[in-house]
Amino acid sequence: MTAVAGVAMLFSATPASAANPPYDGCPGWAICLYEHENGGGSKVIITPDVFGRITTFSVAKAHFLNGKGANDQVTSWLNNTNCEVRFYDQAPSPAGWTGYPLMIDRTPHDNYGARGDWTGTNHNDWLSGVDYHCR
Rank of each mutant, 00 (worst) to 15 (best):
Q90M: 15
D131N: 08
A18P: 08
K43L: 03
A70R: 01
N38A: 07
K68Q: 11
T56W: 06
G28D: 14
A3I: 06
G129D: 04
L102A: 09
F87G: 01
S12E: 11
D24V: 12
G69M: 13
T2E: 10
Y100H: 15
W77F: 11
G67Y: 04
G120C: 10
N79W: 08
A3S: 13
G120F: 12
D110G: 11
V130E: 00
A5V: 12
P92S: 15
V4E: 14
G28V: 14
I54E: 09
L78H: 02
W118N: 07
E84P: 11
V74I: 14
M103W: 11
I54W: 09
A60C: 12
W118C: 08
F57N: 02
V44E: 00
G69N: 14
G39W: 00
W118M: 08
C83G: 05
H133R: 10
F11G: 05
I45G: 01
R53S: 09
Y100I: 14
N66S: 12
N124Y: 02
P92W: 14
A13H: 07
G28W: 04
H109L: 10
N80Y: 12
A18W: 10
G67P: 05
I31V: 07
G28S: 15
A30Q: 02
F11Q: 06
S12A: 09
H63E: 05
G67H: 05
V44H: 00
R115C: 02
V74K: 01
S128F: 02
Q90C: 13
F87D: 00
W97Y: 15
A91D: 07
G129H: 03
Y23L: 04
A13I: 05
Q90V: 12
D49T: 07
V7I: 13
V74C: 04
W118K: 04
P94E: 14
S76R: 02
T14W: 13
A91Q: 14
A70G: 07
I54Y: 12
I104F: 01
G120S: 12
M9N: 10
N111L: 15
L65K: 14
H36A: 09
T75M: 05
W97P: 06
V7G: 06
M1Q: 11
W29M: 05
A19C: 12
G28M: 11
T119L: 15
M1I: 10
F64E: 04
A70W: 00
A60R: 07
T2K: 08
N82C: 13
V74T: 07
G120W: 08
D49R: 05
